[in-house]
């Protein structure tokens, strides 16, 4: 890890006007949710979306603009650079979760809805852990693409997996020629569900150590793959 790259990544995000505006908006939503006793998942959905926006800026746009080449001409290890950028974005998103969570709790305390104790900390924690995988995937896709193609690949993969799942359900319940085969072999659908749970984990509402460990280890594997790809990536300048 490069502390210099990590600090620069965090600095670049938190000094961005759009980042601050989004933080204020999400904090206001969280305060409203808390005061009205609404579900915290509402404002956390915005955090996930903001996280994808921040994550899509990893590697690809830097490659296209030539900034990456400027940095890689310095004595910076590529793996260290990749991991530092990743960690910087995760911290920027963690701030998006931590600050509004405080406002959510404050809203609930203010109107005396005291059911916040455990749930109010578990949900942001799980969202943060799920984001580890989201950011890892964006880093992986960014390790071999240019510009913002990583986010396109992220959504494409998600769409393909969901559509395949939908198609399998339709085939299983329908009366197609291959329906009996898939009814007899539910392991295909189960395997696909397992892949979706691993690649696009959904934050749960309770502390589930097994789930947390699964997400963290999957993110680590994806980051390892990303660093292997990035180490061998050619970065010609003046490419775009």
């Amino acid at each position: 890890m490069s502390g210099v790259v990590f600090r620069e990544t965090v600095r670049r995000h938190v000094r961005n006007g759009l980042y601050v505006v989004l933080l204020v908006v999400i904090a206001a939503l969280a305060l409203t949710c808390g005061a009205l006793g609404g579900p915290s998942g509402f404002w956390m959905g915005f955090v996930t979306l903001a996280g994808v926006i921040l994550g899509c800026q990893l590697i690809g746009p830097e490659f296209s603009s030539g900034t990456l080449q400027l940095v890689l001409a310095k004595p910076v290890n590529r793996t260290s650079y990749l991991l530092s950028r990743y960690a910087g974005v995760v911290v920027a998103v963690a701030i998006y979760l931590a600050v509004p969570a405080v406002f959510d709790v404050a809203g609930r305390v203010f109107v005396n809805k005291t059911s916040f104790a455990k749930e109010m900390f578990v949900a942001p924690l799980n969202t943060a852990i799920a984001y580890l995988m989201t950011a890892a995937l964006l880093v992986f896709f960014g390790s071999f693409t240019r510009s913002y193609l990583n986010v396109a690949l992220y959504f494409l993969t998600q769409t393909i997996l969901y559509m395949t799942g939908g198609a399998l359900s339709a085939i299983e319940t329908g009366s197609f020629a291959i329906s009996p085969f898939f009814k007899k072999h539910p392991e295909f659908h189960d395997a696909l569900r397992q892949v979706m749970r691993n690649v696009f984990p959904s934050a749960t509402q309770e502390i589930d150590w097994r789930w947390m460990l699964m997400v963290v280890s999957n993110a680590a594997v994806v980051l390892l793959l990303a660093s292997l790809v990035f180490r061998r990536r050619e970065v010609p300048y003046g490419a775009d």
Binding site: S2, V4, V5, E8, R12, R15, N16, S65, G66, T67, Q69, L70, V71, A73, K74, P75, V76, Y237, G238
Partner: peptide, 28 residues
């Protein structure tokens, strides 16, 4: 090693001083 690209690109919000400080720290 020093390298000057034909077109210098970096985070355009950074000041000239902040940019150079970042580069200096990267180069230790």
């Amino acid at each position: 090693t020093g390298f000057v690209p034909e077109r210098m690109n970096f985070d355009r919000r950074a000041t000239g001083r902040a940019f150079l400080r970042y580069m200096a720290r990267l180069t230790r």
